[in-house]
Structures are given as structure tokens and as C-alpha cells.
Write a protein that binds this DNA or RNA. Structure first.
Length: 256
DNA sequence: ATGGTCGATAGTCGA
């Protein structure tokens, strides 16, 4: 099973690129973030025509998540337990015996912002949810734009970014807590090139200079991680004309 | 020079 995550920063603008990528990479499940569209505008038929089922949770202008999959999703959820939120950032679904969460974690803006407090509360609710999920399912996957660079090697310039949003201790601790209940960052299960990033700011020619961060993650429960045969970032779409500022991340699993 | 560039949307906000 091939599972991928991609923050597309507007599905309206990126639809053609997503379709092209789907046909090249052929994932079984693709989680999209920042679709930035309402459900009535979701281009479900473009995916259905290519043999994919869709489920989506959107709103005007901001946020929005979707799951594109070969097989139909079951037990779909669009919220974290006990955390009612008008911002559409969560899509959970079961595919065969794998419970998958597609997530758009709040950015937080800056550590002194109200949005940062919201990010920390949101991560706390995510931790509770993912703890509960490993009690009821053996195979759990949490993927998406985490808006957290887990460690300094995931940052192009750790000194400049020290303590800043995406790298601050509180959010890194929140991610560590999620890992401590049995989730593994599948990217780090394998040898990877140095300076591997998944997001590069549009400004200052950041991509050309590889001034990026690895903030798009695929976490797997221990049992699922034992089946993981690879995880990689596909930088090719970031080279497109009018690219998303994020690259897709892909993980592969055997026997599921 | 305290910026830079996108996307959604129509003056700014969010990333």
C-alpha cells in the first residue's frame, strides 16, 4: 500500500498538477491539505474519472482537507474527539484494516500569537485522539502538514529558526508526546539525503537555495511501522510552474 | 530598505 500526503495550497489552482502526479505515482491513498474550497466546489469527478474515490471537508478561503483513495473510506470522521472546530483540518477514515488521519495542523503564525495557543490546544486534542486510536486499532497512520519541524536536521538554518514558530520547544514537545505513545516518523526509519525538506517559502528563491523545512510527516503506529518499506519526499512537483509551496511525501507498506 | 511571494478575494489576511 502506497500512502501519500500533499499540502496543495489551493486545489483549484493545483488540480491539474495533482491529477498528473496521481497518474505518475499511483498512490492507494492521498491526503490533501489546504484545498481552500467549499465541499460543493470539490472536483470529485476529476478523481472519479481516474478510478479514485474522494471524501472531503472544506470551507471557503482557508484550510480544507481531502482523502483521495483507490478503495472507499469507512468510518469517516471530520473532527478530533471533544474538539469542536469551525476550521476544517481533520479527515479520518479506515481503509481495510488501516486507520488513517489526514491532518492540517494549525500554523500558529508566531509564538506570541493567539493562533499559537490554538495550535498547542489543537495538538493536545490530536494527542488524545491518536492515543485512543492505538487502543482500538493496531494499524494507525497520521499524516499531513504538521507545521512542526521535528528536529534541527529538519531545518535549513536551525540557528535562525531557534525558538520560532514551526521549531519552538512547546510544539516540538507536543510532537514528541505523540511519538511517545507509539507513533514513528517513517521518514527517519530510512537513510535519507541531508537537508531533506518538504516545504520552501515562495519568497527569496527559497526552493532554489534549498532553504526549506521538513514539516510534512507520515507517522505510523509501531505495528504499522514494522510494515513500512520506504518513505520519501518527491521534490519534482515543487519544480512545476505555479507550484504548491509543499512537496508530497510518500510512504510504502507491505502486506496491507 | 524590517521587505521578499503566493492564494483568496477585493482591502487585507494567512501562510
Amino acid at each position: 500500500m502506497k500512502i501519500a500526503t500533499w499540502n496543495v495550497n489551493s486545489l483549484r489552482v493545483r488540480l491539474e498538477q495533482v491529477i498528473e502526479w496521481l497518474e505518475r505515482v499511483k498512490p492507494d491513498v492521498l491526503g490533501l491539505q489546504e484545498t481552500k474550497m467549499t465541499d460543493e466546489n470539490f472536483p470529485a469527478s476529476a478523481f472519479e474519472e481516474r478510478g479514485y474515490t474522494t471524501v472531503f471537508s472544506g470551507q471557503p478561503t482557508y484550510n480544507g482537507v481531502a482523502l483521495i483513495s483507490r478503495r472507499p473510506p469507512q468510518d469517516v470522521t471530520m473532527e478530533l474527539n471533544g474538539f469542536s472546530d469551525p476550521q476544517k483540518r481533520v479527515l479520518g477514515a479506515t481503509f481495510d484494516n488501516v486507520r488513517i488521519f489526514n491532518l492540517y495542523v494549525p500554523n500558529g503564525q508566531s509564538v506570541d500569537s493567539d493562533k499559537y495557543e490554538y495550535k498547542l490546544k489543537w495538538l493536545n486534542a490530536l494527542d488524545a485522539q491518536l492515543q485512543a486510536e492505538v487502543q482500538s486499532h493496531e494499524l494507525v497512520l497520521a499524516m499531513g502538514d504538521f507545521n512542526i519541524a521535528p528536529e534541527d536536521p529538519d531545518v535549513h538554518d536551525p540557528a535562525t529558526w531557534e525558538g520560532k514558530v514551526l521549531c519552538s520547544p512547546k510544539e516540538r514537545t507536543a510532537l514528541t508526546k505523540i511519538k511517545s505513545v507509539g507513533y514513528i516518523d517513517t521518514f527517519r526509519l530510512f537513510e535519507q539525503p541531508e537537508k531533506s525538506f518538504s516545504w520552501w517559502d515562495y519568497r527569496a528563491a527559497a526552493f532554489r537555495r534549498n532553504m526549506g523545512m521538513r514539516i510534512d510527516l507520515i507517522l505510523a503506529s509501531k505495528k504499522l511501522s514494522d510494515l513500512c518499506t520506504g518513505c520519501s519526499i518527491d521534490v519534482e512537483p515543487r519544480k512545476n510552474e505555479r507550484p504548491s509551496d509543499h512537496a508530497p511525501v510518500i510512504a510504502e507498506f507491505r502486506d496491507i
